[in-house]
Design a protein around this nucleic acid. Structure first.
Lengths: 190, 190
DNA sequence: ACACATACGAAACAGGTCGTATCGTATCGT
DNA sequence: ACGATACGATACGACCTGTTTCGTATGTGT
């Protein structure tokens, strides 16, 4: 039995890092369609083999790039639902906030070959964190028991998504506060 | 001088219609990347020439498909801002409401070669209609003069976008009413 | 009737891309 | 030393984009 170590030459993790870095840069510059695996290999100075061994196809590579640039920290728990939702919104914004060129990267999440992996690895998790925030608020009596979790969360998430991916403009924290205040004061019901 | 008629054989408008129809169907089935101009030509029974004469590239073709399926009716003017915004939101939803397979078509709007044409031909126009609704509401005293037009409109538009393109679920009219009510009651300020 | 201008379908083309396969070589554990 | 795997290089088939060329069809102006 001896060891759990894998046999053979180990995968070069530093190479993995460089692949994701270069792919991210090229994705930001040229968009999903303009990104070619061959260019990534060229930029890194490796062969296509190294890339295809790690990711089954281009979509998986791009999904990995996006996930590597996203944070999935613990959901905030300040005791105040407005503060929690504000931090939740901030996290949304940070995860989507890319430099102007890289808006292409963000939009790549809608590619049919990219989205499913991102839903499983990211959106689902984010939703669960939001649900937690709201459930705690209900328990504290800050929100009515029949509040519509998803509508409330999707409104906040949608504002960021629309701004970043359509209009390419970030949102002032003050405006998040206004929208969250409105939604908490008159919450959508089931 | 005589006539304004164009010289030569006139463009076959029925063929144009069939091209957009077939392109829309294939786009819905296979997404943007899975759509090929050659397949469209094959489906229609025409040559690629006929397509490239109408649209300079694949992106323009897809943009034309999306615009052909979108309504840009007059902005509602009921005298009540809540009713106007609800109709505005309904229009958003109708414009994005595609059968499940066709969610691919919707997402194609984020393609770098498609988006610019759609911004000019659609989003900009929709925004102007929303601004009009809000300005009339301010004039009637239903909204404060320092309301933040874009944040209010983007919140409504974002909810639909997030739901349709990320979660693929339509929104009950009742929930639009709730969200709009909250936003009008405590509007985001400048 | 006839010339002209344009649209049409078919086909070939160059350039790029994806993803696979095949080399020989390098680097690990046993 | 040996087996197993990663690595770089290269070639490959299949497909796609967008251009061009050809002969043909269909309109207008004289």
């Amino acid at each position: 039995m001896a060891s759990d170590e894998k046999l053979g030459r180990p995968t070069d993790e530093d190479l993995t890092r460089r692949i994701l870095e270069a792919a991210g840069r090229l994705l930001g510059e040229n968009g999903y369609a303009g990104l070619s695996v061959e260019k990534v290999a060229k930029a890194v100075g490796c062969g296509k083999t190294a890339i295809y061994r790690r990711y089954p196809d281009k979509g998986a590579l791009v999904a990995a790039v996006l996930r590597s640039r996203v944070e999935l920290g613990a959901p905030p728990d300040t005791g105040d639902v407005r503060a929690d939702l504000l931090e939740h919104a901030r996290q949304n914004q940070r995860n989507q906030e890319l430099s102007p060129e890289r808006v292409h990267g963000m939009r790549a999440m809608f590619e049919p070959d990219v989205f499913p992996a991102l839903w499983e690895g990211f959106f689902k998790h984010r939703r669960e964190q939001g649900i937690e925030i709201i459930d705690r608020a209900i328990a504290r009596g800050e929100l009515p028991a029949d509040v519509h979790h998803d509508i409330l969360l999707d409104t906040i998430a949608g504002l960021t998504l629309y701004r970043q991916s359509v209009k390419r403009i970030s949102i002032d924290e003050r405006h998040y506060v206004d929208v969250i205040d409105a939604l908490v004061t008159r919450p959508p019901r089931r």
